[in-house]
């Protein structure tokens, strides 16, 4: 019998992803050779999962806006100056140490995002939630996450319909095409808040119906949503391989040269 995708055991993959991300986080700053090697390994794993390296690399850029937080370090650290001079009326200097910290954080986050992307590509979120439950995630969180995943599209559909109705009534955001803009900012905020309030009431009513249905089917206590049905027979092997990968990344970080 074919195994349903929502029943697949993702425990090995979750452990592997977490250990890889931990290994990347533990790499010293400026280990660009190791970063390149780790990315090659991640891109290979991605290709094996059906992700083209370029697509995977582009997906990794999702964390790019956060690099703004580290950007000032390039200009304000006074050590290892690479360049100093005037840019218009402003005096500017570029620090090698600041640049290294910035690039390290940017590259590490870029690769880590790709690791997470491959995990979700290989396993649907229901499998991951079920596997996390099997990894002793508390029942309330596992059931809550299972319900969230199950009903998120339904409520997003409700929200989309509400947004369309709002657009027709002139409270749409500035810049969107074919939509009128009206009212003051507090009025628009009030309309948005009303939408959120109305959506919560729909979620509340739905929760009541889910509980009634569960009670009618004889459920008591846990709903056991997101349960893992068929455990992976090669789990131990996968965990051992993940540990090996973690050790290899850490050792490469310690042994290979840094800039």
């Amino acid at each position: 019998m074919l195994q349903r995708s929502s029943q697949r055991d993702a425990r090995g993959a979750i452990v592997a992803a977490l250990l890889t991300i931990l290994g990347i986080a533990l790499l010293p700053a400026g280990s660009y050779v190791v970063y390149a090697l780790v990315w090659l390994a991640v891109a290979t794993a991605g290709a094996a999962s059906g992700y083209a390296p370029f697509t995977l690399a582009r997906r990794g850029l999702i964390a790019l806006p956060f690099t703004l937080a580290a950007l000032p370090l390039i200009f304000i650290r006074g050590d290892e100056l690479i360049w100093s001079g005037a840019l218009g009326s402003a005096q500017l200097s570029i620090s090698g140490a600041g640049l290294r910290i910035f690039l390290t954080a940017a590259v590490k986050s870029w690769i880590s995002v790709q690791v997470g992307t491959i995990l979700v590509r290989r396993y649907p979120i229901e499998s991951i939630v079920g596997s996390l439950r099997a990894l002793k995630l508390p029942d309330a969180i596992a059931t809550g996450a299972g319900l969230t995943v199950r009903y998120v599209e339904l409520l997003r559909g409700e929200a989309s319909r509400m947004l369309r109705a709002r657009s027709a009534r002139s409270a749409s955001p500035v810049g969107e095409t074919r939509e009128r803009i009206g009212g003051t900012i507090p009025w628009r905020a009030k309309v948005t808040g009303n939408l959120a309030g109305a959506l919560f009431l729909r979620a509340y009513a739905r929760a009541g119906r889910v509980e009634e249905a569960a009670t009618a089917r004889g459920a008591a206590g846990s709903l056991s949503l997101g349960s893992l049905i068929q455990p992976d027979a090669r789990l131990l092997l996968k965990v051992l391989l993940a540990l090996l990968a973690f050790t290899a990344i850490t050792a490469a970080g310690a042994l290979l040269p840094r800039v």
Partner: peptide, 29 residues
Amino acid sequence: ASQTILMGLSGAFIFAAQMFNFPVAAGTS
């Protein structure tokens, strides 16, 4: 148990409600 169900649906609500935005100024919401 019923609290857990409400929590699950509330999680879905938070996801969906994050779609709601309102204009503050040009290009900013």
